[in-house]
């Protein structure tokens, strides 16, 4: 009998607690920036695509919902000629973001992606690519990679010596 009264008392106290239910969609929840929602592809600080089409996101994806094809521009930059995420399969695990060596693929706190038709959940590169750097503003892959691209020749990168003079006989 006592325990029942205790329970009733506790429940009554709850009625005066702060409300946690959010009146979605009239009211939007506040999510952490690292919330794993809609996936985007970001750009380097110079505005060019960050993705170098290394296929690591596709390999890491446990549901195999990422497909892409690598290509190279005349400037020597690798980029995906197509990049497709099938969000009807995606489980938003974030492994792709973890695998990405260039911070190109990022998960965002946007989750409002519902569609009436499954094919509409297939996002191509044009749907994924945003115009900014996303969560990692300063990162610039080609500055730290050894590969030469237009505008960054061998030895121009961060922490790089100028190219070796092969014909030098100096000890």
């Amino acid at each position: 009998m006592l325990s029942i009264l205790q329970s009733v008392w506790k429940m009554m106290l709850h009625a005066f607690r702060e409300r946690v239910t959010v009146q979605y969609p009239d009211e939007k929840p506040v999510l952490a920036p690292r919330y794993r929602g809609r996936i985007i592809l970001s750009r380097d600080p110079d505005g060019l695509e960050r993705c170098v089409a290394c296929y690591l996101c596709a390999a890491a994806c446990p549901v195999d919902c990422i497909a892409l094809q690598a290509d190279e521009t005349v400037d020597g930059r690798r980029y995906p000629s197509f990049f497709r995420i099938n969000f009807s399969r995606c489980i938003f695990c974030g492994y792709c973001e973890e695998a990405c060596p260039t911070y190109a693929i990022q998960l965002t706190p946007d989750y409002e992606m519902s569609e009436y038709k499954r094919p509409s959940l297939v996002y191509e590169k044009k749907d994924l690519l945003i115009s900014g750097t996303g969560k990692y503003p300063g990162y610039w892959y080609y500055k730290v990679a050894g590969a030469a691209v237009k505008g960054k020749d061998k030895g121009d990168g961060l922490e790089e010596e100028p190219p070796v003079d092969v014909r030098s006989l100096m000890p």
């Binding site: 596709a58 390999a59 994806c61 195999d64 497709r84 099938n86 399969r89 499954r118 094919p119 297939v122």
Partner: peptide
């Protein structure tokens, strides 16, 4: 066993 993209390769044609 590491092959990728099984559920996305043809997704532009059919899901």
């Amino acid at each position: 066993h590491r092959r990728s993209g099984r559920t996305a390769v043809e997704a532009d044609k059919t899901v």
